[in-house]
Design a protein around this nucleic acid. Structure first.
Lengths: 333, 333
DNA sequence: GTGAAAGCGCTAACAT
DNA sequence: ATGTTAGCGCTTTCAC
């Protein structure tokens, strides 16, 4: 068994030095056309593939970016990942992905693990890092982007939108439609869900006319099924007074809608339903569900682009980016 | 700016040799408790993080696995990825993920790129690799698992289930329910969708009584919306004769169902609908949609486990694994 | 435009 | 149980 060919083997075959081969690979313009051709065919001949570890060690460039998301099962992050991989691909970067399952402690461990690969940048979800995690990240001294939400005290760069404001707006929309006893239905209760709840509460508090409100939450992960259960709970818990439900995401909203149909409640007449994240299904069910849309793919893409263009520059070289959101008003409200 | 500490720095601080520090990191049991403690605290003191590239270069172990999936937006692969990351995490492996967008050519490029990271194993979706890709993979001489479908000629290992047989079974189910003019509705038409179409056709051909059948396909990617459009098309294309629709996935099935409601067609009375992949929503809509379920998370997990346990062994050391599927009969048929 | 020498930070192999 | 030596395969630096 002949071991894998290396740079020297290619060099020997092409009748040049190793460094010339290296240059053909990373900076072809610095090599004359003749040699370049020779080298290229030698590479193809022996099926040479450059050893990334050696390259990374010598050049101190790992060619990887680290990404930490809280969940692989939440479709929301699919979209973000699509944007991330798109931009990484365009920049010839590999992605090292970690799923911290919404746990800051797991996130801390992941950070330590991923940093050992010497990523040239890191994308991290949200702003709820542990102190030690922040220390590690600062120490690593690489560009970093916190995504999804906005914060006044970013570790470095930041891109996202205000979940608080979006929730405030959609709640206000319910009130404007005449609903006077809205409920917030939330699952998981991660930081962004909490911000949505805060926005909901503030919108109620700010409303000039008197109105009641209800809150039904659980730490369980979101699912369509859970949406049905929580709808039941909120109706029972409000003594049938609740006339509108703001679900912290569209999974719950869909479940709530299906449950209403089963209970023969008319949406939006007996009860209004709105969600968050604007899944495709939300626009296509009957009645279509009002929801909050945000440019997730774009956010992922831009986060990576920010990393790539921040190379070399110091911290906070890029101002926080608000990607915004929009309330998609549909017939469920 | 003091540069990052390395092994020697830790060793000096702890008063030991570099290799001892290395051992504490990779094989603590080989070091006495006393030294281990000293080293551990030195590591923490100066915030040492091991340089992965150097480690990989010296040990010839990259600690990464390559994974290629055809789509990040298809929820199906989310589930598979969850299993993959789960098992990779348990085995202290990092994942390098590539999305080939259902293109064998992009897949080929991805393989070349990912191989340069010297992965210790590779997970690849399906069996439609280009010749050159197969050559690269064989040459790489690392454990490989083809996932999702089963094949008689795996490159190395294989885990999946028969999409042909699953489609055959669900079509037979339609026929057994008395439907005599079923249609196949397919999008994307990737290899596994083609297999489902083949199973559909064979089930029709094998049915003892005469029946008509229709096929409506498009190369467009699946979506709920497209499901509605294709339902329209198949009804028009069959002159209203079609009495059952087998959608190649649940996105389309949901769209078809929503469209039926809009058209005031009763499901399953006027028309039956069934899908593939068993999404959560399929079980919760009214009427619930008959679909094909398969253990996707488990498949991902086991694929990685197969890689990890195949280290060192030769090709085909593990027999192909059929994870099976089950038809979830619900009220839509 | 091309090459020679040195060394990136770690671990395998071999001592002790 | 611990240390010494050598070298992984590449790129940087500097020379020509």
């Amino acid at each position: 068994m002949n071991k894998k060919p290396n740079l020297k083997d290619v060099a020997k075959l092409a009748g040049v030095s190793a460094i010339t081969v290296s240059r053909v690979l990373s900076d072809p313009d610095k090599v004359s056309a003749l040699l370049r051709q020779k080298v290229d065919s030698a590479i193809r001949d022996i099926g040479y593939i450059r050893n990334h570890a050696a390259s990374a060690l010598a050049s101190k460039k790992s060619g990887v970016l680290a990404v930490i998301i809280p969940s692989l099962s939440n479709i929301v992050f699919n979209d973000v990942l699509q944007g991330i991989y798109q931009a990484a691909n365009a920049g010839n970067m590999q992605i090292l992905l970690g799923d911290c399952h919404y746990s800051p402690l797991q996130e801390e461990k992941l950070i330590a693990t991923l940093l050992s690969q010497a990523p040239e940048g890191i994308v991290i979800t949200g702003t709820a890092q542990t102190d030690y995690a922040r220390k590690l990240l600062l120490q690593a001294d690489i560009p970093l982007v916190q995504i999804m939400e906005l914060t006044d005290q970013p570790i470095d760069m930041n891109i996202g939108f205000s979940h608080y404001q979006a929730a405030y707006d959609i709640t206000q929309h319910l009130l404007q439609q005449g609903y006077r006893a809205p409920a917030f239905v939330g699952a998981r209760m991660d930081p962004r869900t909490q911000q949505r709840l805060a926005g909901f509460k503030q919108a109620i508090a700010d409303w000039p006319e008197p109105c009641r409100s209800f809150v039904q939450t659980t730490a369980q992960p979101s699912s369509i099924k859970l949406g049905g259960q929580l709808l039941q709970a909120v109706i029972a818990g409000s003594d049938n007074q609740c006339d509108a439900v703001f679900c912290c995401n569209d999974d719950l909203a869909l479940g709530a809608l299906f449950e209403c149909k089963r209970m023969n409640l008319s949406v939006p007449k007996d009860i209004a339903i709105c969600g968050f994240n604007d899944f495709e299904a939300s626009a296509l069910v009957e009645p279509a569900i009002t929801s909050v849309a945000s440019p997730r793919v774009e956010m992922g893409r831009r986060a990576v682009e920010m990393l790539l263009s921040a190379a070399g520059k110091g911290r906070h070289s890029v101002a926080p980016v608000d990607v915004g959101y929009s309330i998609r008003v549909r017939s469920s409200t």
